[in-house]
Write a protein that binds this DNA or RNA. Structure first.
Lengths: 249, 249
DNA sequence: CCAAAACTGAGTACGCCGTACTCGATTTAT
DNA sequence: ATAAATCGAGTACGGCGTACTCAGTTTTGG
């Protein structure tokens, strides 16, 4: 009851007793290394402990459950969203675009991050710093904090949703061990059987003119992001105007 | 090699042999019932078989792995995105908004759906029908299939991203068994320790003016969706104009 | 400086999980 | 009627997260 029920509130080093053999950061780093190399499912408490040269149960001195290992991993890597110390752009649109791009690059570098982060509302220090940075970019717009949160939430929703489907597709391909062409060929007969029912005219059009001028995934990401930012900017009060970002309904 | 490596291509009822005791649909329905009531992690092959009154290993007559159970669940529930037979609205914006709302309602009704669906690129019949429907709404815009896919992909990315964070938050709350107020109180001392460092001015502003006029989650969802649709519509060629949805860069 | 308090790390064990494999019983097409 | 094909059930294996125990080590209060 009196304990620290939150990982981030629990002090890493207790007051008394011998010095721990390693740190939370080292634990997170080891887990990240495993996940990067072999995927999330390769992480087990036994494996992680072995990599750290520790007994399996010793990990529970640092963390109360496997879930907290994941929390550590996510918050550590989210720190990569904010790599450089250069001052952020003055323009909030440019600032959010930059943040979005860095989030995407990080999530592509660590394919386990997007699915993992999506399932856990974060309160770690790096997540807090990220939110702080994003909100700070909107400081000059004269919005309430609530309006800022709505705005940033919309951008993050798009970014996370896009990247998640992007890495899911890439990971499915990687797991299958096939090339893109092989995989398409595998699905082709099924798709053709759907088309044969006559109920999928658009799918039919897709197979006929598909693959011709396929938009790259970078451009697709930028397309939606730019449209969203355009729409947000257009809905903003020009200069202390009467309408906030939440439209009246 | 000659086999059907895809669940959807494999015939449900083989040519010879005794009649199966139940159907794939019944299997999916049982799994969905368990997940709705007790969460995704309550699904195990033993539990599922017991609910169906079958031996554990008998399930593998219907499905080659647990993953295929999940595939069945997702495609079954995605069917709920398209509930009514009413003709879709003429306006593509209204059509996509309708689809987005139905997706959201379905994912809130089945909290396991969003995280599950995000991780598996779908090819099931209902997913194909959903894509077919969405693309069909854009028929009158004079876009190429590739442009349509980019447009629909952006909208789905936002919708999935928003809903996923929405249900993640709700599920974390539900799992903790606390009320919202209790949970906030739990995090408060941690947040205050962050603020005490002086590095989180926005977080500080949040705690001071927060909770005052918190935008409801329905309105937040609609805000981002409307801004995105606005931005898309604004970037569309007015009437066969020179510019497609993918901006020139 | 010394005792006692506090914490460490390793080991053992339990109850789950997914699923490979086997085999007699049953149903169907010919 | 017969033979091929599939069914349902059982057994077993390796791996998982983690509860609990206990001897050894480090730190701190007096």
């Amino acid at each position: 009851m009196t304990g620290h029920e939150n990982l981030w509130m629990r002090p890493e080093r207790p007051a008394r007793g011998p010095r721990p053999s390693f740190s939370r950061a080292a634990l997170a780093e080891a887990a990240i290394r495993i996940a990067d190399a072999e995927g999330l499912e390769a992480i087990s408490m036994r494996r992680l402990a072995a990599d750290l040269g520790a007994g399996t149960m010793s990990l529970y001195r640092y963390v109360t459950s496997k879930d907290e290992v994941f929390d550590l991993m996510v918050d550590t890597v989210v720190g990569e969203y904010l790599p450089d110390d250069r001052p952020p752009p003055d323009d909030w649109v440019e600032g959010l675009r930059l943040l979005a791009g860095q989030a995407r690059r990080t999530m592509l570098r660590h394919p386990w991050l997007a699915p993992l982060a999506a399932g856990r509302p974060q309160v770690g220090p790096n997540s807090a710093r990220l939110m702080e940075t994003a909100l700070g970019m909107l400081g000059g717009l004269g919005l309430s904090v609530d309006e800022m949160l709505t705005l940033v939430g919309a951008v993050f929703a798009y970014v996370n949703g896009y990247i998640q489907s992007e890495v899911a597709e890439a990971e499915a391909l990687r797991r299958s061990g096939l090339t893109l062409a092989q995989r398409l060929a595998q699905h082709l007969s099924y798709i053709q059987s759907l088309i044969a029912t006559g109920n999928y005219p658009m799918l039919e059009r897709m197979t006929m003119e598909g693959g011709r001028e396929y938009t790259g995934t970078d451009d697709r990401f930028a397309y939606g992001l730019d449209r969203l930012l355009d729409g947000i900017a257009a809905g903003l009060p020009p200069r202390g105007g009467p309408e906030g970002p939440v439209r009246s309904r």
